[in-house]
Design a protein around this nucleic acid. Structure first.
Lengths: 110, 110
DNA sequence: CAATATATATCGTTAAATGATATATGTCAA
DNA sequence: TTGACATATATCATTTAACGATATATATTG
């Protein structure tokens, strides 16, 4: 993708999207991985490398923030800014689906 | 994105998604660029570098095929296989939106 | 005739995702 | 108790995707 940072455009990658969604409730990394696999019913899974790389990026962009931290577990939660970008991205994705449905004969697919 | 070819996973990138959508009607590259900008009302634009790189990839994967070709313009159209992958991808994207709406309080956003 | 739009193409760079791998603790059954 | 497996975090190096910059050529039009 790339050459232009997706966050600077206010767009989320699929992985960022699901990680932010997971952190609407405070969780630590390992739980995030499990959560993503669960809500997508296995359609998407994020391994530790992707996980911690993306967590770092989201922290840096202040879309998530650290919390308490029980022992060596590090908890994170979405920020106000993160939630705002997430809801915008849901709308962007909804618009893509609507664009497609308008062109394909998929009006009945809902 | 990466490290595993998205097409091998049967997933389309945003750019591939819109290019395939454009080619549900036969068009040449330049028209595809304009079409994408139009249907997205400027939300997304694809420049020539991305355009021709992706066209090549879609041809190679047989999701699109060349057509007649009026003069030096090269026309392409989606294949049966391409249409099948595109409709699957619309469903995948719709599922992502639904996952998000189930978790956020966005039920009324439609 | 010069500027702009149409049309296609490639090169090299940046960013994203992740396989592989490492480390450490906790849990549980043989 | 020890070996296997789950929990938990972390980094490195590689592959793929997207695209800015740039080049080329023709057509249109003011």
């Amino acid at each position: 993708m790339p050459r232009t940072d997706s966050l600077e455009l206010g767009e989320l990658t699929d992985s960022m999207f699901y990680i932010l969604l997971a952190l609407t409730t405070p969780r630590h990394g390992y739980l995030v991985m499990q959560f993503v696999e669960e809500i997508t019913r296995g359609r998407m899974q994020i391994g530790p490398a992707s996980m911690y790389t993306i967590i770092k990026k989201l922290l840096n962009a202040e879309l998530i923030e650290p919390m308490d931290g029980d022992g060596k577990k590090k908890n994170y939660q979405i920020t106000r800014k993160g939630r705002s970008i997430l809801t915008d991205d849901v709308k962007r994705r909804q618009a893509m689906v609507e664009d497609a449905c308008a062109i394909l004969d998929m009006e009945g697919s809902r």
